[in-house]
């Protein structure tokens, strides 16, 4: 299935290194994306005023104060701004499954809070988040339901949020050792 169809089916990928796209404004980008997904589901394009209201609402929800609308996608953004922008896009597209690939890397603590806060606010019984991280720190803000440990492309251990604490304390070596 082409990636755009997967997106329309409700999968969202939060990139570790979001690409800069000079010349494409965030408004234009998001409106095109929202409408393309609507088209996929046989819906009419979203009216302009409704769309702008939605952008404003999501910005407020995520406590993003920066003037996003006129800026080009990720162009000249700091690491934190790029990740906030990923979360903003996620909020706009309302996916049923979001995969956040090391969203916490390169984030200062304030940006981390905003990102985590966004995920928490978007959490609903009918959607799911896969958060990929190396650190326990993010999990202080996003409390996971299930923790999986991947090694060589396989899930080698699963558990509740306690597993993350255990890893933080002991490192990954003991899992490798226990596999041997």
């Amino acid at each position: 299935m082409p990636i755009e169809d997967r997106a329309s089916e409700g999968i969202f990928l939060g990139f570790q290194y979001p690409v800069e796209i000079p010349g494409v404004s965030i408004t234009n980008f998001m409106r095109t994306a929202v409408n393309e997904q609507r088209k996929y589901h046989g819906l009419d394009p979203i009216p302009a005023n409704e769309f702008l209201a939605k952008m404003e609402e999501k910005k407020q929800m995520l406590e993003i104060t920066a003037k996003l609308a006129n800026r080009s996608v990720n162009e000249g953004f700091s690491g934190g701004e790029k990740k906030k922008n990923e979360i903003f896009q996620m909020a706009m597209l309302e996916p049923s499954l979001a995969i956040l690939d090391e969203t916490d890397s390169g984030l200062d603590i304030d940006a981390l809070k905003i990102v985590a806060n966004g995920v928490n606010k978007l959490r609903r019984p009918d959607n799911a988040f896969v958060v990929i991280t190396h650190y326990q720190r993010l999990l202080d803000y996003i409390v996971p339901d299930i923790v999986h440990v991947l090694f060589d492309g396989r899930i080698v251990r699963s558990g509740g949020k306690e597993l993350a604490f255990e890893l933080e304390e002991k490192g990954y070596e003991w899992i490798k050792a226990s596999l041997a």
Binding site: I3, T32, E36, Q37
Partner: peptide
């Protein structure tokens, strides 16, 4: 790829 990953054909 980035644009397509948001559902844009």
């Amino acid at each position: 790829f980035y644009l397509r990953s948001r559902g844009i054909g």
